[in-house]
């Protein structure tokens, strides 16, 4: 009995010390391991996916709790979050472009919030109470990191091109009106047709895609944009610029994401990206997919299209159209 108090106290001290030591480590080892795995793709695999693509060239701020851990040049620095958001994005700060990603555990939760709340509550609860819940896979996390690295690359290399496209959609109300128009059954049907055509082209047999089918896809895309312009009462050029801008920014990034999964030999995940093309999406998400699909087609139609992209001022759809000429 006399020994109880000192032993109990000792247990408390040891536990407190253990918690202190593990919390001082700050960034969980898992996140660093994933960052390093992403960097190992710079052995040439990232360059193949997109020329000049790199993760280590940019400081990566990994947000966990109310802090972000900036990993750069072999060092980890803790600081207060610069942006008050939990998001995957890039931002310029102190003459550098920063990549911001939440930590893996936060991404798991975010994924569960999005999937759980939009799916059934039963699925969400079963997932939370099970020991192997629906967590983001490592390759998916690395792919997302590379997606953001692509945005950093765009920001540093395509500033002019982005500005030019953005000028075409200067009116901030355009985006809302385009999204409103998506409730129109005729427009929805066109988007569905467009998604179906692109999916078939992308998953068709290896080799050159059928030129007629490509032309039909380009026609359908143009018709869709024209219909949106007509029904939403927006200038046709603005609608086109809007699509071009998001396909360029997000489509190429989604393409990098999918190709990273393939570079990590996660064919199941890559298959999921391909399969996602089949389902029609609305809002900005449709451009992520159509942009990615066009990039995949361009890979087969014109091996040098990425260089053209850096050099010229064309959109992804413009490049695709050019390959048929």
């Amino acid at each position: 009995m006399k020994a109880f108090r000192p032993i109990y106290l000792l247990i408390g001290v040891l536990l407190a010390a253990g918690v202190l030591v593990t919390s001082l480590r700050g960034l969980p080892g898992e996140d660093l391991v994933l960052y390093e795995k992403a960097c190992t793709l710079e052995d040439g695999r990232l360059g193949q996916i997109w020329p000049g693509l790199s993760v280590s060239r940019y400081p990566v701020a990994i947000r966990k709790g109310n802090a972000e851990y900036v990993v750069f040049d072999g060092e980890v620095r803790k600081r207060k979050p610069v942006l008050p958001v939990i998001a995957c994005t890039v931002y310029p700060d102190e003459d550098r472009i920063y990549i911001l990603v939440p930590s893996k555990s936060v991404m798991d939760s975010v994924g569960q919030i999005v999937e759980g709340f939009s799916g059934s509550i039963e699925d969400f609860l079963i997932d939370r109470f099970s020991i192997e819940g629906k967590k983001m896979s490592e390759s998916q996390y690395i792919s997302i990191l590379c997606h953001e690295a692509m945005h950093a690359c765009q920001l540093s290399r395509w500033e002019e091109k982005i500005k030019a496209l953005a000028e075409g959609i200067a009116d901030p109300g355009i985006e809302a009106r385009i999204e409103e128009s998506e409730s129109d059954p005729e427009i929805r049907a066109m988007y569905e047709k467009q998604a179906d055509l692109l999916y078939r082209l992308v998953v068709s047999d290896e080799g050159m895609p059928d030129a007629e089918a490509v032309a039909e896809y380009i026609r359908t895309r143009k018709d869709t944009l024209a219909l949106v312009s007509e029904k939403a009462g927006i200038d046709a050029n603005a609608v086109e610029s809007h699509a071009d801008l998001y396909e360029l920014l997000e489509g190429t990034a989604r393409y990098v994401e999918a190709k990273t999964a393939l570079a990590l030999s996660d064919e199941e995940l890559y298959g999921q990206y391909l399969h996602s093309l089949k389902e029609t999406s609305f809002g900005k998400e449709k451009y992520y997919k159509s942009g990615m699909g066009i990039c995949m087609l361009l890979d087969r139609l014109d091996p040098d299209w990425k260089q053209d992209m850096h050099a010229g001022s064309l959109s992804l759809a413009g490049l695709l159209e050019n390959t048929g000429r």
Binding site: G18, T22, S23, P28
Partner: peptide, 21 residues
């Protein structure tokens, strides 16, 4: 962490120690 033991993934003692504390 229990799941990590089962799958052979690295185990982070942080949450386990924090819960014990």
């Amino acid at each position: 962490q229990a799941s990590n033991i089962l799958t052979g993934a690295p185990v982070d003692p942080g949450p386990v120690l924090a819960t014990l504390l």
